[in-house]
Design a protein around this nucleic acid. Structure first.
Lengths: 217, 217
DNA sequence: AATTATTTTTAGATATGTCTAAAAAAAATA
DNA sequence: TATTTTTTTTAGACATATCTAAAAATAATT
């Protein structure tokens, strides 16, 4: 069994590799976890001793297959709990993260399999992130950033990169939700902001910063 | 916020007072929590400093109203989660305790209120224990031990004192469940074992030890 | 290539929660 | 009441996970 802290490190390492496909540095982990590099080094030794990561001093880190499996199971639990909170307990998508951060560490195979079943084996969580199945397999959507679309092109909103509650509430307010059809009607060169139409009904302007965090597929 | 360890101590102290109405000693807590008296003393100081218990050296311990409220909320969460596992996730009553021990420490008011609502505000958990409401109020059933019933008297099985999985599975096997009508048809003087009829259908013998752990109301 | 800057690791400290062994207090017994 | 036994507390140690400050290694720059 792994400690809560160990689980959080594995998850952070997994997510860093998911983003950049670069080697994962001590400092990157420290920043992602809001802790100090020296604490990270200590933990890397521990995880290495447990054969959850490959670690050579000064050389960065990657998950072993055991470590990756473990990380995927934590992510599976996190995303299933988020889905449960939204679908069964009327949570909004901006409220689920903090609670799921706690629930993801609950240890019970039966519990998570039953939650999965109750939700009818969802493939994606409320933010559009894929949910690993019980074997750790993940279904990837081919998506691009809304900020990368050309004028006149359109697609379906499939996910968000930023999970910050204030960002999510902003999307709610503007009527931007997963499943919406978004068409880029204009691109303002000056600040790269976009004029978009949502479901062919509503037009609005969004900043480049916002567009960078919306996934279109 | 209280640590996991602090929460477990508060719960243990609450439950000890619930059983015997006697002052709660350091050793009693140590035994209940399977730890050493010295560890208990350390924690009692901590809880006392947080104004969760009244503690004077060598004089035993009792919860402050703050401490009792906190304990009740932990017990509320534990019992609601047990109910959730049984009613929504097909857990058996002998499987729920270990998982609920983890879930009871999840911190989210909205989460527990929504679970309560989803279950339609149950008053008792799968073992017949009362579930404190969101204000900490508890509905007490007036029950007696099956071992205390006289010959020919009967009642409804309302709860169990022992939550040990092997005891609960034994009850399942014999068809003894909450809600059953149990009549004492004979008392064997030699070992105080009972002959009982269950729902006027089935007759069986149970030991005094078993009867001591069945609550009738 | 030598120097400077940055990153990473080590060394030693701190806080939490636990333990053993010894001391102190309370309770039981003679 | 004095003595013995039991209970409780204290003192000091240990493990986990964190931190700061300094040292070591690597990377960047002149």
């Amino acid at each position: 069994m792994n400690s809560l802290s160990e689980e959080n490190y594995l998850k952070a390492i997994y997510k860093l590799r998911e983003k950049n496909n670069a080697p994962i540095t001590t400092n990157a982990i420290a920043e992602a976890m809001d802790t100090k590099a020296s604490s990270v080094t200590d933990m890397l030794k521990k995880l290495s001793a447990k054969d959850l990561i490959h670690y050579r001093k000064y050389q960065g880190v990657r998950l072993t297959s055991r470590g990756e499996k473990t990380a995927l199971m934590i992510i599976r639990k996190h995303r299933l709990w988020e889905m449960f909170l939204v679908k069964k307990l009327s949570f909004r998508w901006d409220e689920v993260h903090m609670v799921a951060e706690q629930l993801e560490h609950i240890n019970s195979d039966k519990l998570i399999e039953q939650i999965d079943k109750l939700l009818d084996y969802p493939k994606f969580d409320p933010h559009g992130d894929p949910i690993p199945d019980s074997k750790g397999r993940i279904e990837t959507q081919k998506v691009k950033l809304l900020s990368g679309l050309k004028r006149k092109s359109s697609g379906i909103m499939k996910g968000v990169d930023d999970h910050d509650p204030s960002f999510l509430r902003y999307l709610d307010k503007e009527g931007l939700a997963l499943g919406c059809r978004i068409q880029v009607t204009d691109i303002i060169e000056y600040d790269r902001s976009l004029k978009i139409s949502v479901d062919n009904k509503k037009e609005l302007y969004i900043s480049h910063e916002v567009a960078k965090n919306i996934l279109i597929g």
